[in-house]
Computed example of a mutant assay.
Amino acid sequence: MSSESTVLIFGGCGFVGFHLVRHFVKTSTFTSVAVVSRSAANHDNHVDGATYHSGDLTDHDSIEQLLLKIKPTIIIHAASPSPVTGTPNEYEHVTIQGTKNLLKIAKRSKDVRALIYISSSALAKGPEHVNLDENHPLANTDPKSSAYARTKALADLMVLEANNPFPFSEPSVKETSWEGHLLTASLRFPIVYGTHDPTTIPGCLSALQKGQIAFQLGSGKNLWDFCSIENVCAAHSLLVQALLNPKRSPGAAKVDGEAFNIHDGSPHLFWEFARTVWKFAGHRPKNDKVTSLPAWFVLALASFLEWGYWIVTLRTKRPYNLGRQQVEYACFTHTYSIAKAKERLEFTPKQDFEGGLKEAVTWSLKQDHWDEKLKHVTLTN
């Protein structure tokens, strides 16, 4: 890496993006850290030491001007509509068209050498994923897949196909214009947990507040891989180092143009996540009786409610609590092999599931005021 290097994080005010900004500022991997976000001017997730720029991936010309101004060495693409409440139009607009814009502009840049796409394990084909590797067919080949999974798969593939490495025979690669060349890779994550989480942990706490903890969807035997925000940041550091290493040789393990599954390294029961969140929020059950709703029933109900909801809202909104995608998450196993990341990136996940969850729940209780919201809730049942 040259003496002057900049990482530019699109979506750096979001949950994962915020932690990546803080990570790279703290580790001093780059001489400067820049963020582009639609909410850059007024978002609470700002990190001292980073610069913030307002921008929208779907606005080609403004993004091109920002890249000319910032001159990033590497781009991390973390911008994405919510997997829970985003609509097909939003996914098409941001995930597909926005990614196309960014790849086109990055490849024309003289400064950008690499682009990392923050992807999702949900892009794999089918409702159940059992120890899948990165070669499993993706959701873009499945007409029954959700709009989120399908567009994530298409964007992931676009990023990998855009890979065009600089010839190793070129002298002084680090000093040469990178126009026309770009190293790309994607990191695929399952459910990520940590502080500043706006979705998963608040969703669990909301269920506790509403007294919806005596029911579960499905048998409760389905396993999930989860990923701490600490492992997310560690994986990015390793991939950045591998992509920008000027001493890479043709015989080195290939990382550019590749996708990598990343998680904590050990699966847990899906419903264990929610119950652990409830425990750290102060819930102390008097009995362990839980009513299980059959998967076939809740899947049919979710499909009916989702279509009804979309008809009423003219396809502008999705149900927050009982969409088909959320039901499939709750009822089916989602586990993935990280052998490739261990071999090629030397990724060794830190395993502290309960410790990481405790820190995240404590943050939500204090900073998002869930302690106040739960104050009058009976935490024993």
Results as ranks from 00 to 15, higher is better:
residue 27 T to G: 09
residue 33 V to F: 01
residue 218 G to A: 02
residue 106 A to Y: 03
residue 19 H to D: 11
residue 70 I to D: 03
residue 303 S to V: 10
residue 216 Q to S: 13
residue 207 A to M: 12
residue 320 Y to C: 03
residue 89 N to E: 14
residue 26 K to Y: 09
residue 337 S to T: 03
residue 67 L to I: 15
residue 299 L to Q: 14
residue 33 V to D: 00
residue 88 P to Y: 05
residue 284 R to Y: 01
residue 66 L to W: 13
residue 32 S to I: 03
residue 85 T to I: 13
residue 125 K to Y: 06
residue 253 A to H: 13
residue 6 T to K: 07
residue 214 A to N: 14
residue 81 P to D: 04
residue 228 S to F: 03
residue 45 N to E: 08
residue 250 P to C: 01
residue 275 R to L: 08
residue 350 K to T: 14
residue 329 Y to G: 14
residue 226 F to E: 10
residue 223 L to H: 05
residue 51 T to S: 14
residue 175 E to W: 08
residue 310 W to A: 11
residue 144 K to C: 09
residue 38 R to H: 09
residue 170 E to C: 07
residue 362 T to M: 10
residue 109 S to N: 08
residue 60 H to D: 10
residue 331 C to N: 02
residue 104 K to Q: 12
residue 282 G to K: 00
residue 345 L to C: 10
residue 364 S to R: 02
residue 364 S to N: 12
residue 262 I to W: 00
residue 13 C to H: 01
residue 376 H to S: 15
residue 350 K to R: 14
residue 202 P to Y: 04
residue 141 T to C: 03
residue 269 L to K: 13
residue 358 K to N: 05
residue 115 L to I: 06
residue 5 S to P: 06
residue 189 F to V: 01
residue 290 V to S: 07
residue 307 W to R: 05
residue 227 C to H: 00
residue 37 S to V: 01
residue 69 K to T: 15
residue 133 D to K: 00
residue 154 L to V: 13
residue 344 R to K: 15
residue 228 S to D: 02
residue 201 I to M: 05
residue 185 A to K: 04
residue 192 V to C: 11
residue 228 S to V: 02
residue 377 V to T: 15
residue 164 N to I: 00
residue 246 P to I: 04
residue 266 S to F: 12
residue 144 K to Q: 12
residue 274 A to F: 09
residue 258 E to Y: 03
residue 208 L to Q: 05
residue 28 S to V: 10
residue 1 M to N: 11
residue 128 E to Y: 03
residue 6 T to M: 04
residue 227 C to Q: 04
residue 241 Q to I: 09
residue 113 R to F: 03
residue 12 G to W: 02
residue 173 V to W: 06
residue 359 E to M: 05
residue 72 P to H: 01
residue 326 Q to C: 07
residue 238 L to D: 05
residue 145 S to V: 01
residue 326 Q to W: 00
residue 5 S to R: 15
residue 220 G to E: 01
residue 371 D to N: 15
residue 77 H to V: 00
residue 151 T to V: 06
residue 307 W to C: 02
residue 232 V to D: 04
residue 189 F to L: 06
residue 241 Q to Y: 12
residue 76 I to N: 02
residue 71 K to C: 08
residue 91 Y to V: 03
residue 217 L to A: 14
residue 277 V to P: 03
residue 193 Y to N: 04
residue 285 P to I: 01
residue 62 S to C: 00
residue 86 G to A: 06
residue 210 K to M: 12
residue 51 T to Y: 05
residue 80 S to L: 02
residue 193 Y to M: 06
residue 126 G to W: 03
residue 288 D to F: 09
residue 129 H to A: 12
residue 170 E to S: 12
residue 306 E to N: 02
residue 229 I to K: 06
residue 83 P to V: 04
residue 367 Q to D: 15
residue 93 H to A: 06
residue 215 F to C: 11
residue 64 E to N: 11
residue 44 D to T: 09
residue 156 D to E: 14
residue 243 L to S: 13
residue 152 K to E: 13
residue 149 A to S: 15
